[in-house]
Nucleic acid binder design. Structure first.
Length: 349
DNA sequence: CACGCGTGGGG
DNA sequence: TCCCCAAGCGT
């Protein structure tokens, strides 16, 4: 069955050139390193948030070689607060793969890029389009919204089959021979500005004449997505051990929540933390609970702050190190050099 | 294929 | 208070 698809490329490209975004820090360059870094940071993350990280990261790691040579811990420290920390791990692994497998230059095709850690189909396409002018389709949250509306695409995107069908359509909608950069950027810009989730600004949209959802006055009904992950609840205790101006921090395991970041020792509950401390001398005080929301659960963290006397016996300090082999005392001044989870950084501050 | 994985903002 | 979402990917 042959289905007629609307010609969105020409009006979209024209609109992007006139009204799209052109001055973001990762634009005006075809350097794959800079584009790649921005694409990874922007995964599931809004532009406004990334703006606070991108330049700082680039100043510390100006090229793929410097990133590949750095300790992972330094990379995580710069990523701290951005979330989805596996991105930072994969970023680091990817930089090393580019050095070892591609001689320090990103491969110039989406097909090769997608084989690198942290680069999926959409990110590979974005890099290939922006840096190498490859005619290939992206399909992120913005593009899904724009395309499902233009087409009045009724199928549930929670289904892999339906999403695959939308990918195929995205490929067919690409401009025939020119303007893949402006087209790709235009889809993102449109989704991020006019074609918003609620109350889209159809009056200003270059595609409104072609848009089936707009014609039916049903824009807010697309995209169709049923996925509903119910968020669970967890409660734990954090042991805030203070000595002088230093805090006892431990590096979290390299899998799970906040993988590889520095945090305070975590306990099942306040009682368990109390029990571990036993009769240790010093001032002990439970602090108000910290509520933190992650994608899959609400977390209630109850900090137990314990200030050790200046002269604390070596036996006790040895027990600390034995219980948490990765642990160490970190002074206030050294906190910024460590990757702390957002709520932990806030608590310590 | 379903789920794990952060954080901040908006309605 | 609660739900949804944001330039998704890996397992």
């Amino acid at each position: 069955m042959k289905v007629e698809l609307p010609g969105i490329a020409a009006p979209l490209i024209d609109w992007q050139k006139r009204h799209g975004r052109h001055a973001l820090p990762w634009q005006q360059t075809r350097d794959p390193y800079r584009v790649w870094l921005s694409e990874i940071m922007l995964q599931q993350t809004q532009v406004a948030t990334v703006l606070g990280y991108y330049d700082r990261f680039l100043a510390r790691f100006p090229d793929v070689a410097s990133l590949a040579a750095a300790p992972l811990d330094d990379v995580l420290a710069l990523w701290a607060g951005l979330g989805y920390y596996s991105r930072a791990r994969n970023l680091h692994r990817c930089a090393q793969a580019v050095m070892s497998d591609f001689g320090g230059a990103f491969p110039p095709s989406a097909a090769q890029l997608v084989s690198l850690p942290g680069i999926g189909r959409s990110t590979a396409a974005a890099i290939a389009a922006f840096c190498f002018g490859e005619r290939t389709a992206i399909l992120d949250g913005n593009v899904k919204r724009v395309l499902t509306r233009v087409l009045a695409f009724e199928d549930d995107l929670a289904s892999t089959t339906h999403e695959r069908r939308l990918w195929a359509i995205a490929e067919q909608l690409l401009p025939q021979d020119q303007g893949i950069e402006a087209y790709t950027q235009g889809l993102m810009d449109l989704g991020a500005t006019l074609c918003s989730m609620r109350q889209p600004l159809c009056n200003s949209c270059p595609l409104s004449d072609l848009c089936e959802a707009h014609r039916q006055d049903r824009t807010e009904q697309f995209p169709v997505k049923t996925r509903k992950v119910k968020r669970s609840r967890r409660a734990n205790a954090l042991l805030w051990l203070q000595q002088g101006d230093a805090v006892w921090l431990v590096q979290r395991p390299d899998t799970g929540v906040w993988a590889g970041l520095w945090s305070m020792p975590e306990f099942e509950d306040l009682e368990a933390a109390e029990a571990w401390l036993g009769d240790w001398p010093g001032e002990r005080q439970p602090l108000p609970v910290v509520r933190h929301v992650l994608t899959h659960f609400d977390w209630e963290l109850s900090p137990l702050r314990h200030t050790l006397p200046e002269r604390t016996g070596p036996k006790r300090l040895e027990r600390l190190q034995r219980t948490w082999p990765t642990g160490k005392w970190v002074t206030l001044a050294d906190l910024p050099a460590h990757g702390l989870p957002a709520p932990v950084a806030k608590l310590l501050r």
